[in-house]
Design a protein around this nucleic acid. Structure first.
Lengths: 125, 125
DNA sequence: AAACCATATGCTTATTACGGAATATCAATC
DNA sequence: GATTGATATTCCGTAATAAGCATATGGTTT
């Protein structure tokens, strides 16, 4: 029963926030730190947790590691992410994350565009 | 963030099975034992877990305790139960539970009908 | 190669979760 | 009131989780 893995990932607030933000597109770890305003260890560990259960995938690009939702997500994952997205609509925490995400959008445009050659020498967020 | 409580309840297989079966209507504990084919302690504890988080409600009727989904479920709960129902459609474990539920339907008709006066003197399942 | 940056991994502690065996509660019946 | 039936709780051991600190890794730059 693969559903369990999904719900194990969903039952922590930090992970829900990560997944919610990821629904807007790929990001690298430093961006998560800024958007969630949580320490690096915390972000990194929860991403590892998600990765171990197949809820996210990642790819290294130089110093940066880009995380994104699976390219071929299961039916269950799609359904539950949609449900989450729906439920999170009004939640202040999720809304705040989205607001901060919008703010740093310029700084992470190269990720979304898939242009590692445009990555800054140093993190800008 | 109330979503977390929901997902905490969802991340155990026994609880998912309980909720799935409950989606068909109220039942009492002995019925769950038969349908899930799990020991009494296990069923009772997981029902208590669900109750503590508001995912189920219960009412005593003589020797029996009837469990059901909340009369006024939150928007999030409704959405997630629907999603679960959708995802569980083809799962063999859930399907087996439904099959066993159908088998004992006569034995628990009085629960669904809300007729405690028709409860048998002794458990029939 | 040394310094630096972004990210990951041990290690520790506290908390919570799960299961089973035994026992307790609560209600009905004899 | 003693017994029986249905359900809940306690106690135990084990395992998983979450968080922080310190440190390690992998890659880039000088």
């Amino acid at each position: 029963m693969d559903l369990i893995k999904i719900y194990e990932c969903f039952c922590d607030q930090t992970r829900l926030r990560l997944l919610n933000v990821l629904s807007q597109g790929p990001l690298c770890v430093c961006h998560f730190q800024t958007v969630l305003a949580e320490p690096q260890v915390k972000i990194s560990k929860h991403l590892a947790y998600l990765r171990a259960r197949g809820l996210v995938e990642c790819e290294r690009q130089g110093n940066w590691v880009i995380y994104e939702l699976p390219a071929k997500p299961s039916r269950e994952l799609v359904a539950n992410l949609a449900c989450l997205r729906d439920c999170a609509q009004e939640d202040p925490v999720f809304k705040r994350d989205f607001a901060r995400l919008k703010k740093i959008e310029p700084a992470c445009a190269w990720v979304r565009a898939g242009e590692p050659e445009n990555a800054p020498g140093q993190c800008r967020c």
